[in-house]
Design a protein around this nucleic acid. Structure first.
Lengths: 110, 110
DNA sequence: TTTGTCTATTGCAATATTACGATTAATAAA
DNA sequence: TTTATTAATCGTAATATTGCAATAGACAAA
């Protein structure tokens, strides 16, 4: 079907999946890593840095923007992107909570 | 295309994406949460718990097994699944490192 | 052996994702 | 105004994902 049956799952489970999904492509990982590395806005040169076509990068940026993990500011003809640190922190709390499930119990039965 | 151009990215970026992808579906999130919750093997009742058809659950389990995040032990006619704590820890280190990129620099420019 | 139970696999339909060429929209510069 | 630059959107092709019915395979019990 290609469509997840999200009504079967809790809001928490759906939210974790939604956030994780955006990290599920190396281009979006690379974009985020670059934004953190330069620690300021990136205006335009992401296409050159990543190596994918401009519409493709634009599509990946839109997905990151939809989850508000990045912000875009219009600067003349170009657009400057940077990390939305507030949302990044919120996301990190949700994902970390999920990843640290093992801290309670760590006995392996098999 | 539907196919990521993984040759454009580093091994690190591809690995992060690959791991994140498996968490990008609420059913797999729910399966993992259940395995941690009961803290022992689950033999067979995952289909009842999740509410998806048996072949669908089997498919999700296979993806989790491929990344070795879970282990399956044959127990008579049924199969018992449990968390692979070692691999879980390895995965957690990789993802956490990625998520904590913001700890170095946290000044927002826009 | 036969029957029942449980899980994996196969095959397929519906939908999603990825990628990019072509185009559009917006602004800056000439 | 015209031209150039930059990014978003549209349209489309190729591939991936999700979900399930049907089937197969493995084992236990009768």
């Amino acid at each position: 079907m290609g469509l997840a049956k999200s009504e079967l799952f809790t809001n928490d489970q759906n939210q974790i999946a939604l956030l994780a999904k955006v990290f599920g492509h190396p281009a979006r990982v690379a974009i985020l890593q670059h934004l953190f590395k330069i620690n300021s806005c990136v205006c335009g040169d992401l296409v050159t840095i990543i190596g994918l076509a401009q519409p493709t990068i634009s599509q990946h940026l839109r997905e990151l923007k939809q989850l508000q993990l990045i912000k875009g500011t219009i600067e003349g003809t170009s657009v400057c992107y940077c990390i939305n640190y507030e949302k990044w922190t919120t996301m990190k709390i949700i994902i970390s909570k999920f990843l640290n499930m093992d801290s309670n119990n760590s006995s392996n039965c098999c």
